[in-house]
Amino acid sequence: MLIQSVIAAAREVFSPALRSILWKSLALTAALLALVWLGLTRLFDYFLTNHPLSTDYPILDGFAFFLAGFGLFVALIYLLPAVTAIVAGYFLDDVADVVERKDYPADPPGEALPFGQAVFYGLRFAALSLLVNLAALLLFFIPGINIGVFFVANAYLLGREYFELAAGRFWTQEAVTQLRMEHRGTVFAAGAVLAGLVLVPVLNLVTPIFGAAMMVHLHKRLVARRLADGRAGGPVRLEVGRRSS
């Protein structure tokens, strides 16, 4: 199920139907990363120039600037999930509309989240990702733990948030939470795919579009299997939890 969703998303992310959304996503991601980089460089430059430990020895100062540049690069890697979270929240409904119309034409279309709720979800997603990755960044210099913490934390966070964004087009928050908890292992595995993609240079820029498409497919497959197994009921009936148009 997850493998089919990954393959379907990989096939569609560069397709003509999603190409215009992909280019917009890349442009927004690049712009946000540039703003983050500019802000961090200005902050580090101010700190290194005005810090009392600043020396009169050009070699030492140059070495300090080199270390600061490396630190900025590492910080940018850890901040990338938060940036992609903002982009994902902005473009998910556009991606979902295309995927649902193309691959699930017989199903009722999802309902785009209200603008205020979509903004809230996007900002919440980005804030949580920022906090998690800043915490992971503190463990950067502990070998064997740093990458593991980064990967596991982002696998959980990306899986949960992308899934809730996709499923939230059809169900109330209560029903979405129930569905996610019932399939927590699959959702975490999907998040692990996204966390792995974030670690791949260049390809990580397509994470928002790929993640949105993959979760749309995964949500559709999970609901279809749930209904096929006769599990429409439960603590919260999905039919009762359906969002009203």
Results as ranks from 00 to 15, higher is better:
L197T: 08
V6S: 08
T55W: 08
I3P: 01
F163R: 00
F115R: 14
R221I: 06
N204A: 06
L158T: 04
D93T: 10
S20M: 05
A189E: 13
N146F: 03
A136G: 10
Y162K: 03
A232S: 10
T29E: 06
V236M: 14
L205Y: 04
S129T: 08
R237N: 06
G233T: 13
V87F: 14
Y121C: 03
R11M: 06
G144M: 06
L26K: 13
Y78C: 00
A175S: 11
N146T: 00
G148S: 09
L227F: 14
L139P: 01
R226H: 03
L38V: 07
R231G: 00
T29P: 04
W23N: 02
Y90T: 15
D45E: 13
A135S: 09
K220Y: 07
A96Y: 05
K220W: 00
Y104H: 03
I59A: 15
V87S: 09
Y78D: 00
E182W: 02
K220C: 04
V6A: 13
A34L: 10
T172S: 14
G69N: 09
L79E: 07
T177C: 03
T172M: 03
V36N: 04
L60A: 14
S245C: 01
I86W: 11
S15W: 01
E164Y: 02
R226T: 05
A82Y: 05
E100Y: 08
L76T: 13
L26R: 13
E111S: 05
F66D: 06
G211V: 01
W23F: 13
E100S: 15
L67F: 07
